[in-house]
Design a protein around this nucleic acid. Structure first.
Lengths: 244, 244
DNA sequence: GCATGTGAATAGATTCACAGCG
DNA sequence: CGCTGTGAATCTATTCACATGC
């Protein structure tokens, strides 16, 4: 009764959550350059969105800006990091060490700031026991013990599609609350578990759709007599003019 | 005047376009099992969405179902493929052959149905001239010629962030209309070019956000006395109960 | 009868436009 | 005066619910 406090648990829209990492990245870059404050306009430009969106998004976190001035870079960095849960460390397990899994395991770079690979898992006896970096590949049967032991929070699935659901169930049963899925299947999980997917062929197919729409519109080779300014076919990202 | 026809260029919502590949995949699976027709309900279940959405999405393509029966699997497969532009072949170039680029180049599998890697490009003299599969890695300076020659439509950027924009500009200048970006930067492109991004650290950070929200809610280890059915924290995907 | 197709209702996200405040 | 913060307006997407037609 005492601890529940009067803090309103701000509901941050999903779309906003998905953009916070972009702001974070831009701010890191700005901080590097020893800039102390930044306007919503500049931040928007860097993140590839518009200024109104930046202000609305940041307003969900609180009133962290100063009118007439902008946002304090360091302070905003900290607030966004905290909101995203990056002030703590998340133990990560990678399951499946084929081409992709190995590439991810070797990366390490991408894990910067809060993510720490603590376990590599595969079912192939030829891979189990080998080392990638300083981590030994363990057998999938040991996974439940390993994930519990290391309190793994995030599981990265880089297995073939055929076993992805099976592996997911194992992860979920051993307390993993977040799944990043690279396998081309729709995973089913209980409501308290989050899933994000990264699906190459889906992305390519979406590009194919817009590419097809575009085909014919721009005659290729012909430097186009400008007039494209309306721009319609590239909604996913980007869309401003190239630097002059 | 004769060729422009009276076809209404149906505006397909972006969100629908992003789901078509999911339906396609489900239909392929169903077709494999020699099933002739499928209901929106079943298709929805397989694609992990709800039935109303499936019907609405498919209705944008045309009236391809039969009331009281469902959709003809083969026919729908064809219509979706055509809509997505998968009835033609798209030449793809991969730029950057580090861990990730090589994993992608070795994949080939993911390219199934319409995507064909025709060029591998890197700037590292140690990599140029080597072969991955049956393709030789070419120097980035030759890229404009190669992409034009092969009429590359889609460029996959797997370079370090620092050179991604530069490489993008080259691709765009040589007529590439779609970019799949794995580098952690916001790319700027002219309006007629589409960009999709795949960003590991962003995905992890989004998961971190929801994981943090969830933490405490589920005490970990305690098998939770059911009552979670409301489910709030996993909007990205999934969300149904695990199979019994 | 049964599952599609679709207007209407609702929810969510984006953008506008300006009041508020340093 | 300049830039944030935010209600209001708009646009987009989802869901409902039922008429429609095989």
């Amino acid at each position: 009764m005492a601890a529940s406090s009067d803090r309103v648990p701000r509901r941050i829209p999903e779309a906003t959550v998905a953009r916070l990492p972009l702001y974070l990245r831009s701010l890191l870059e700005v901080a590097e350059a020893k800039t102390a404050t930044i306007s919503s306009e500049r931040l928007a430009e860097m993140a590839g969105v518009n200024a109104a969106k930046v202000r609305k998004d940041l307003s969900y976190l609180g009133s962290y800006g100063t009118r007439g001035v902008g946002y304090d870079v360091e302070y905003l960095l900290y607030q966004i990091s905290r909101e995203l849960g990056l002030t703590q460390d998340w133990p990560v397990a990678i399951v499946g060490l084929g081409n992709l899994g190995r590439a991810l395991a070797n990366y390490r770079g991408f894990l910067a700031r809060g993510f720490h690979v603590v376990a590599l898992v595969d079912s192939d006896p030829g891979k189990v026991g080998t080392f990638i970096g300083d981590l030994e590949v363990r057998h999938v049967e040991e996974m439940p013990l390993i994930t519990r032991e290391h309190r793994v929070a995030i599981g990265i699935i880089a297995t073939p599609a055929s076993v992805a659901q099976e592996v997911t169930d194992l992860l979920v049963d051993s307390g993993v609350g977040s799944i990043l899925n690279f396998a081309p299947v729709v995973l089913t999980v209980p409501p308290h578990v989050s899933v994000r997917k990264v699906d190459l062929s889906i992305e390519l197919q979406i590009l194919s759709f817009y590419q097809q729409r575009q085909a014919g519109t721009v005659p290729l080779e012909q430097p186009v007599p400008v007039a494209v300014a309306g721009g319609n076919g590239a909604p996913p990202a980007g869309g401003r003019l190239a630097p002059i």
